[in-house]
Design a protein around this nucleic acid. Sequence first.
RNA 1: GGAGAGGUCGCCUAGUGGACUAUGGCGCCGCACUGGAAAUGCGGUUCGCGGCAACGCGUCGAGGGUUCGAAUCCCUCCCUCUCCGCCA
Length: 448
Amino acid sequence: MSVGLQRLREEPEAIRKGALDKGEDPSLVDAALDADARRRALQGEGDVLRAERNAVSKSIGESIKGGARPDGTEVAEFRARSTVIGERLGAIDAELAEVEAQVEDLLLRIPNPAEPDIPVGGEESNVTIRTWGEQLPRTMPLHGEVGADAPSDGDTWDRRPHWDVAEHLGMIDLARGAKIAGSGFPVYKGAGSALQRALIMWFLDVHTRENGFTEIWPPIVVNQASARGTGQIPDKEDQMYVVTRDDLYLVPTAEVPVTNLHRDEILDADELPIRYAAYTPCFRREAGAAGKDTRGILRVHQFDKVEMVLFEKPEASAEALEWMTGVAEDLLRRLGLAYRVLLMATREMGFTQARKYDLEVWAPGVERWLEVSSCSNFKDFQSRRMAVRFRPEPGAKPELVHTLNGSGLALARIVAAILETYQRPDGSVDVPAPLRPYMGIDWIPGPA
RNA sequence: GGAGAGGUCGCCUAGUGGACUAUGGCGCCGCACUGGAAAUGCGGUUCGCGGCAACGCGUCGAGGGUUCGAAUCCCUCCCUCUCCGCCA
């Protein structure tokens, strides 16, 4: 599972380093190898005994057929032997089951090593690959257009943070969201709701009409096997909302249901690549992030996202990651939002990723870069957990596919960036060009 | 939620305790026939684990049990279909 025993045996040092670089426990590698060695020994022992018992059982059948009496001494002797073998086998099988569970558990906790060229380290080691657009300043000169209530000293005006704009325009109601569900569950209303809807529809339309994605509208709860398949369990279990009564998890991203679409399947080579785009709400407990980004909609428990999910042949996955990242970037350019692309350092990557690019947009009101997309190649890490394989040639042995996914895009922070980038001195907001047909307006006016 | 019928290899299908070492067909792969193909014939074709290999073991929705031995019998669960109830 996960990293794969074969690779673990062949290059344990690389896997240990991979764990260390991601800040995980490298000793799991040796524990897993030890447990696996024991597993193999036990299985060998058990197999021999089983072969013996099969032979004895068969002899009983043959003896009876050959005329021996079922309750005769010959048959009784066979039975006694089989019973003895069965007892030994019972003990070995019990131990084997225990060791197997141990191996599996250990393997599930070993992270996917980052690719060799990924910078080792934390946030400070991320590499900015490229940037696009103008990084607007918060304070802007006034060009004659005097905003009615713009905070201004006469010649300049300051952009408001998105929560201020949203409140002013009646687009988001955080207080009532907190009342009906809790803090971090925003209510979008009026133009705010329409903007959400416009973004979702436009994203999906671009993916399906221009980029060859198949649209998926999946369940937003998943069972345990699915959560384990993409790697949320056991690594990120405490970040998910759990419906304990029915043993279901609220999805933290469409990645989970959509990638699991092909769990336990063998695909034909000519089906690949498979490209899915799916909109879902996303639910995250954000445990351990209390007190971080508490204002506005930068960090919330429920947000909306369109996700791209790819199934690729191994040799094509590296290029597919670049392509998919480009698709997400294209959306940002067409929205006219300044952004930068980061190659994430090892400790900034997730447990499951071999390579990850983050896209961050510039939000001039809060003067921060906001992560709006994360595009990753998992290579065969998820597909091994999920047993998603393909047959390279008709009649050939199945091989693991590579899976990738990327946001295209995450809504809440895009909305924040739009409200801050497109606001006018009077607090009203222009609608980015691609969204105008969907919203039916090109400008969100202030309150009358 | 209640009652019933089912879940076997990519698909369809046979199989009610020992010859199941799981049929047969479709599809697929190889070979033969052919100028080439079609048709036909012969052979192969679940997946996983262990083993250099020969081969062994497991795998009939999942997990337990009965038995010397389980696709087959028993129990629990999951899923699909039909009817009933409820319902957006």
